[in-house]
Amino acid sequence: MNISWDEITEDNLSYIDKVFNLYDIVFPLVVREPHTIFLNGLHYARYRKPNNFRFVIGFEGEELISFATGHYLEEVNSGFIVYIATNPLVRSKGIGSRTLAKMEELFNKDAIAAGNTSLNAIILETETQDLVHTKEEKDNCEKRNEFYKRNAFTKSQGIPYLQPPLHNEDEAIPLNLFIKNLQKNENSIEDIKKIIQAIYKEKYYFVNGIDKKVLNNCLLKMEMNQKLI
């Protein structure tokens, strides 16, 4: 399959409606952020350099077949993937793995632009088995976990990670963290805590605009002593 890649930016919004249509189909409401958060991320990319926001889209011909979004976190020289999705009509063709590889390529460019020789790690959140309720949800959860493992991600241990509430009325959600180390040394617990701190600051505070008191409370529940700000 020949995939042509493009990026959505504040200056290139041509395909954003197609992406939002796919996003609304693929992700259930409980994990969907408002479309405005994506636009906030694009705006953020202009003013938080060398941090960056990547919004990648993949096409086969005229058909949108995948997209992914994520943040380059200069403070920890790592990439944080927020969303990755494949068009349900064209799954099982290796598209997801190629989309991950494209994100890694772009994060690595960000790392070099920030003065590093290469990217340190890529991290992402996935649901835990406690969040699934039906056999179909359980099967999909297991498939996602296996997909990330096949792509060299391993589940981080030792930190009871919480995704902060995406909507005002929600509670923080316990999730798994999967991390792909791109250097020889494994990230320690302290390294991962620093990455979480950077995720909370760059993604959930600056882009999502979640109150820092809420975020600091989540960090406290994760037994992280340092406050966000």
Results as ranks from 00 to 15, higher is better:
G158R: 03
K184L: 09
H133F: 15
F153I: 04
S156P: 00
F178Y: 14
Q197G: 00
D170R: 07
R144Q: 06
G158E: 06
E171N: 08
K194L: 07
H167Q: 15
A198P: 00
E202Q: 14
K155N: 11
Q197W: 14
K180R: 14
I122C: 03
P165R: 15
A121M: 08
I195C: 04
N181Y: 02
N151Q: 06
E190N: 10
G158H: 03
T128C: 12
I195D: 03
L182K: 13
I173S: 04
I199W: 05
N151I: 05
K155A: 13
L162W: 09
I199E: 05
I122D: 04
F147S: 02
N185A: 13
L131D: 04
Q129R: 11
S156F: 15
N181V: 08
H133I: 04
L175A: 02
E169W: 09
E186Y: 11
N151Y: 09
S188V: 07
K138Q: 10
N181S: 11
K184E: 15
E125H: 11
I159C: 03
Q129G: 03
E169D: 15
K143E: 03
I196D: 08
V132C: 05
P164C: 15
N151K: 06
I192S: 02
Y161D: 08
K143C: 01
K180P: 07
Y161Q: 06
L131C: 04
A152S: 13
Q183S: 10
G158K: 08
I189K: 15
